[in-house]
Nucleic acid binder design. Sequence first.
RNA 1: GGAGGCGUCGCCUAGUCUGGUCUAUGGCGCCCGCCUGCUAAGCGGGUUUGGGGCUACAACCCCAUCGAGGGUUCAAAUCCCUCCGCCUCCGCCA
Length: 422
Amino acid sequence: MIDARVLRDDPDRVRAAQAKRGLSDDVVDRALSADSARRQAIADFEARRAEQKAMGKQVAQAQGEEKQALLAQVKDLAAEVKRLEAVQGEAEQAWHDAIMDIPNLAADEAPAGGEEDFVVLETRGAKPEFDFEPRDHVELGRMLGAFDLERGAKVSGSRFYFFTGVGARLHRALVNMALDQAAAAGFTEVVPPSLVKPRAMEGTGFLGQAADDVYRIEGQDLYLVGTSEVPMAAFHSDEILDAGAFPMRYAAFSPCFRKEAGSHGKDTRGIFRVHWFDKVEMFVYTSLEDSFAEHQRLLEWEKEFMDKLELHYRVIDVAAGDLGLSAQRKFDCEAWIASQGRYRELTSTSNCTDFQTRRLDTRARDAQGGATPVATLNGTLCSTNRPIIALLETHQQADGSVRVPEALRPYLGGTEVLKPVE
RNA sequence: GGAGGCGUCGCCUAGUCUGGUCUAUGGCGCCCGCCUGCUAAGCGGGUUUGGGGCUACAACCCCAUCGAGGGUUCAAAUCCCUCCGCCUCCGCCA
């Protein structure tokens, strides 16, 4: 959630942020009136409660008839206090609901507008040129025996697959390369749970408008995470961190599950858009002031990984309307997919500032004992499927073999070229 | 899955049976000050978190907070119910 003080002291700033995302400011007005109602309810309750406490003390000391008289008086007061407590609870709930609906305030630097209004920051790597008719990843995967889409559908349904043979090895190699890079950069490696309670889901902003993309376990209060950002943001919930330890960097490896509701017919071919994949995610806790520089660092690490795969890609500054609930700013790395003739998202890094930590009660204390807000950031280091797609399509050769980028070779036992199985 | 035990403001801990001076005890740690060649010891004070009021987002005042949520009561750390977590033993399993 956004800072309540900003909402109260500078509501126009929140309205402007809403407008930048292309959203109405109804929620802002709703939150403001809920806030004043809440404070009135709190004042009413607290005043009567104090009275009740004072009288309770008299009752404890009184004896006999005097005590009976006091009891009769305080009884009505107790009922009133109980009623006011309920009113306060409702007012707090209404306020909570309202402010939770307000997305993070987009950075001033973030481009205004929607999905199409991104700004290209840079383009890197050589664009692949072929003197033959290039194949798409499905065809290449079939020739290499890298994955099995038919059996994936047979066993689990559409948008499922098996990685097989060299595909499974490639999967493992990419994950290991990513984790090694993260370790070298000082990240703490984590394997988080992929099932979480509603709190974690809500705290990271995935239960609002994004809720229909989330798998829920029937009969239990558990959700399958779409990214390890969820368990990692909840990792330090209800904790007070030592600001001296910032930035706290984690590299989490986990499966990711997505319903892909509403994307029927979109990217149905191959393993591009699927219900499950694995991902190495960078997740950082740091101070608000440092978060902007850290965001750039996360982007640099993503670029380092993309460069090692020798891909052609561009970096975009995502527009405000496409940020999602939690992000203040977001950069995506989009790799060139030859068969589609366009750039597609491979990694994404967001600065969520203190939006998630407010929802999850994560705070920090500096050396002087003062409380400071905590920012969270996340960034894809390596999701498994899309890099494999980009890799196969970019480095394919006329006979259907695929050249392995040098950096990846140590992770494939020195293999320089992946060759068709038949 | 079965049986038992436990959850108190950083850590440890008193209090729960017998509801009300609990405004939660004491120790350790930590912070401030005094004292002091230095250090240590000693002495005094402070030290949960969230929210509200007033404001300089200080001081101060108030409310809530004893794992969480309900209930009983004028009054709950204390009594009752539900849930969560941890520990021990048994069973089962990777």
